[in-house]
Nucleic acid binder design. Structure first.
Length: 265
DNA sequence: CCATTGACCTGAGCGC
DNA sequence: TGCGCTCAGGTCAATG
């Protein structure tokens, strides 16, 4: 389940592996994967960088186009020298002039790659909240956003329009470190609690990026290697808290939440 | 504007 | 062995 650190890990690998490669063909192997509504031709140009915004990837080219991509739950980018056509779940592919391939593999087919004009500003990006690791995500901003929200802090932190990049795993870990129950209403949080959320959001995401993300079920990097951050999780899919109490699993907005009733108030 | 719910998908895991 | 059920969860549209 790629969240910000996992997407950043993928972006870092792609920047090492496909920069400067010239595209010779692109193919969709499963419907709704490759979106190109403007019929933009990308053949003959090169990828010059890969960037991240929230959980989105943006492939920037030396032509008048870019690719917006999202891995959703099970999407993976894989670079191979030889494309094995018998491999399952390959949804789209790009071939480069050196005969290597960028494969987009996605079991559950929710991910996509969308070809856009270089100066397009898609709504999905425009509506995103601030990047959690930048200074624009701070105590003042979050305080303002929580002021009139009576929904649960868990659901609020998952809302990409409020903060971009968090998913189920990291929200659980952030609330655990901040000692805040996922059930608390957004507008009930005190100043120091908001401060802790901001602080732990940044520190946990930074550490997870250093560890190349979390591999629980569906994530592996471009090189198929696992991340290491799962070894540092405290509550997500855990049975017991360090304090000895069991970790409670509940449903919030259709998503599972994990927390310790003793440590998180 | 805000909150909630269902839809989109496939494979793994479980009970019987 | 196999069937049917539940679960996994990121995002958006629809609804109140």
């Amino acid at each position: 389940m790629p969240e910000l650190p996992e997407v950043q890990t993928v972006v870092n690998s792609l920047n090492e592996l496909i920069i400067g490669k010239e595209i010779t063909s692109i193919e969709e192997l499963h419907p709704r994967t490759l979106i190109n509504q403007k019929n933009i031709n990308i053949i003959g140009s090169k990828i010059i960088s890969v960037n991240r915004r929230g959980k989105y990837l943006i492939f920037v080219s030396d032509g008048d186009w870019k690719i917006l991509a999202h891995l959703r739950m099970t999407g993976k980018f894989i670079i191979v020298k030889n494309y094995d056509k018998t491999e399952k779940h390959i949804r789209a592919l790009i071939r480069f002039s050196d005969d290597s391939y960028l494969l987009f593999k996605d079991v559950r087919t929710f991910g996509f790659m969308e070809i856009l004009k270089a100066n397009d500003k898609p709504n999905s990006l425009e509506k995103l909240g601030p990047e959690p690791l930048l200074k624009s995500f701070n105590k003042k901003y979050l305080t303002e956003k929580l002021r009139n929200r009576k929904g649960s802090i868990k659901t609020i932190l998952l809302n990409q329009h409020i903060i971009a990049g968090l998913g189920n795993i990291y929200v659980a870990e952030i609330l655990y470190k901040a000692k805040i129950s996922p059930l608390r209403a957004g507008n009930s949080l005190k100043k120091n609690e908001i401060d802790l959320i901001v602080k732990y959001t940044k520190s946990i995401l930074k550490k997870a990026i250093e560890k190349n993300g979390t591999t629980i079920i569906d994530f592996s990097g471009v090189d198929q290697k696992s991340g290491e951050f799962q070894n540092f999780l405290h509550v997500y899919q855990k049975k017991r808290c360090k304090c000895g109490n069991p970790i409670i699993k509940i449903k919030q907005a259709g998503r599972s939440s994990f927390y310790c009733e003793r440590c998180q108030k």
